[in-house]
Design a protein around this nucleic acid. Sequence first.
RNA 1: GGAUAGAUGGCCGAGUGGUCGAAGGCGCACGAUUGGAAAUCGUGUGUACCUCCAAAGGGUACCGUGAGUUCGAAUCUCACUCUAUCCGCCA
Length: 429
Amino acid sequence: MPDIKFIIENKELVEDGLRKKGYEKKDLDLDALIGLHQKISALKTSSQALAEEKNKLSAQIKSASNEERPAIIAKSKELGEQFKVEEQELGRLQEEFDLMMLKVPNLPSDDAPVGKDDSENVVRRYVGEVPHFDFTPKDHIELMAVNDWAEMERIAKVSGSRTYAIKNELSKLELAMHMFVLDKLRGYGFQVITVPSISKEKPLYGQGYLPFSRDEVYYLPQDDLYLSGTAELILNSLRADEILTENELPILYAGFSPCFRREAGAAGKDTRGLVRVHQFMKTEQFVICKNDMAESEKWHQQLLKISEEVLQDFELPYRVLEVCTGDMGAPKYRQYDLEAWVPSQNCYRETHSCSNITDWQARRTNLRYRANADGKVKFVHTLNNTGIATPRALVPFIENHQNADATVNIPAKLQPYMNGVKVIGKNAK
RNA sequence: GGAUAGAUGGCCGAGUGGUCGAAGGCGCACGAUUGGAAAUCGUGUGUACCUCCAAAGGGUACCGUGAGUUCGAAUCUCACUCUAUCCGCCA
């Protein structure tokens, strides 16, 4: 949510941004928002004038003579009544205004491709060679079955659809991937942090999950708590309401957590296998930096570079997609997705999502810092990107690295995390 | 789940109805002192909003959150939330 003053002063710019993001007047009425703000300002002016007068009278009471006092008290009381009425009206309007502001999305970057949905995302580059098998490659579900790597049917009986239980070498691989990425991030100066998957409601507004996607999130009514869909949710609120010093920035978190998603809007999509599950593990990259476009653009590129490096180290062919304005979520200023090649589906599937949020989340969590140059308090910028998310990443991994005998090669960089094992599977020597 | 204690500024901590945006200390910034530093001394040091706007100024609100009593609340009342400790349970 941009600043209301910015919205008023740059109304056309904001309207243009809303249009690009696919908003219509029925989604968000800027004129109503601005009108509400003007009403609130006017009411504040008058109610504050009342408060001032009332305060002045109250201050006189102690020193007033016994004759004067009753009149002053009566007058003050009268002002108090008026004040109360205006305060109540103000509270009502403010609440309405706040709710509306929560719905204002971030404005997209001028450099972001303009488009209405994912069909208009732009491929920036292809990296790595798509493998050509001289045998019929298996999909990841077959590979898991052949190698006794999973309990897909049985776990569905226990835990329902879109759940997974993987075992033996594959679960070792899953955890190894996270260890590998966490070590890499540590090398880049990130603090490794394991965070809860349980959240109060407020952080969901802070991140921008609410009020937009309530259907997507698990809710625990007994405790009025939510299950987190990503460590970003938690990390974004970890420093909420703080005023940091500029010297503390940037703050780099490598967050690890189980993640939960209802996948309510994905009925029928990816129902089999490991691509889309209700619970998964994610190592997340999260950055808090100065309020400076050059600075956050730099971090955006850095995060992208790190995740590309992960896919390269895993020797997976992938492409870099720049997400168009209509497909970006409300919080985003600019977004890249990485998609790795999935042989069985003959297409690229998303493994990473890298976003610059600028100050949009920081305004919601009230996370600020004091700038060294002028001593002014400013909102930070936040950015996030996947480090690695499993089990989805296992899908391209085992499919691309499979051999004719259903064994799977472990890329050199990952072997140290697998006790030096080079090949896994039933037929591995 | 049971019991108790608590929540005040960047931190510690005083404050039981007006003189309290809030003593004192620490920290921080600037200045003096010094060859330089430490120590010492002095000065300053919250946020949001309204008004005004070149700047300054003036004002309102904020002592966990919300409501109430009162001319007036950090202070009194009620509800809630959170935190800590002990007991119970437990990976």
